[in-house]
């Protein structure tokens, strides 16, 4: 009995010693809730080594894909709030919550920082007959509910075309293709007509394998000035996907401070800007406070969007 008590005290001491060691004293896991090779993964892959450099510990990316990105979200939410599990998020967290796909809300996490913003581009299969938006619009009006769109249902790639539907007064048909890569397979083979993509697919457009219809930014992209904006075509839709890092709710304040400063330093590295340029993505840094406000605003916006689009389930 006495031995047991000593052993237990020993364990307790070990445990507390662990707790008092300065964060971080072991590798940090960053959950990316999609299969590797998707656009979120492509953004966090080059980011992780930079974060690692500033945080002073190995940062390991864990791709936990599945179920419209909600499997990884759930795992991140349930992880111990000790700063050793982080969560790579984008706007889908709001849309999947309000469309009832997921029970995980952004309020289950502590914001750390936003790092990037990628504009959406409406993209068409090479096998479609239209040359531009006007052709697409005429066809969509002639055949309502017939033009198929590959999308991760309830997520950003569903919201973006749904906004276009609403603004232009047309109706699409949605087919579930989760993640950018499967959507590209389907659209190249002509099995769906349209999808939400981004400038990373520029190479395929130049090779004639895809058609960019319009970009959802305020101004045309310097990367491809030939692609018109939806706004100038009379469709009032501006849409981008913003990515950031969250930690489970209840993570200690000192850990959050450390994470925020490392995150900021990593996002400001020129190497990150370079790799984001290749992804046709803007570096968009926001600190904890600012990101928290932004998340709240974005959440309201997504709730309104979901309601307007008839997808609101909460």
């Amino acid at each position: 009995m006495k031995k047991l008590a000593i052993a237990l005290t020993g364990f307790a001491l070990l445990a507390t010693a662990g707790a008092f060691a300065a964060y971080p004293d072991r590798p940090v896991k960053l959950i990316v809730p999609w299969p590797a090779g998707g656009d979120t993964d492509n953004i966090f892959r080059p980011y992780a080594p930079l974060l690692q450099k500033h945080i002073g510990q190995t940062v390991v990316i864990a791709n936990v894909g599945g179920a419209s990105g909600t499997k990884g979200a759930k795992e991140a939410k349930d992880a111990p709030p000790d700063g050793y599990t982080l969560y790579a998020v984008h706007d889908y967290i709001h849309s999947t919550y309000y469309t009832g796909v997921s029970d995980v809300n952004y309020t289950d996490f502590e914001p750390i920082c936003m790092i990037s913003s990628t504009a959406s581009v409406l993209t068409a299969s090479p096998k479609t007959p239209w040359k531009d938006w006007a052709g697409l619009l005429a066809d969509a009006k002639a055949r309502p509910g017939q033009i198929s769109v590959g999308a991760t249902l309830g997520s950003t790639s569903h919201f973006f075309p749904a906004l276009i539907e609403k603004a232009a007064g047309i109706k699409f048909k949605y087919v579930s293709y989760e993640g950018l890569a499967p959507r590209m397979n389907a659209i190249l083979g002509g099995h769906t007509d349209l999808t939400d993509a981004n400038m990373t697919q520029k190479g395929k457009v130049e090779a004639g394998q895809l058609k960019f219809i319009a970009i959802a930014t305020e101004k045309r992209s310097p990367e491809m000035p030939g692609v018109p904006t939806l706004k100038e075509l009379g469709v009032n839709v501006v849409y981008d996907v913003n990515r950031g890092v969250l930690a489970p709710k209840g993570t200690p304040a000192d850990v959050l401070v450390k994470l925020e400063s490392s995150c900021a330093a990593a996002a400001k590295e020129p190497a990150f800007a370079d790799s984001m340029k290749k992804q046709a993505t803007d570096v968009r840094y926001m600190g904890r406070k600012q990101y928290a406000d932004w998340l709240k605003g974005n959440d309201d916006l997504n709730k309104t969007l979901a309601k307007d689009l008839g997808l609101l389930k909460r």
């Binding site: 599945g66 179920a67 499997k71 796909v101």
Partner: peptide, 21 residues
Amino acid sequence: GSDPVMGQKRLTLGIPFLEGG
């Protein structure tokens, strides 16, 4: 666990880690 299209829970048999399939 869950359906692969919408991630809706189904047939989890009450086991939490089955929820993701």
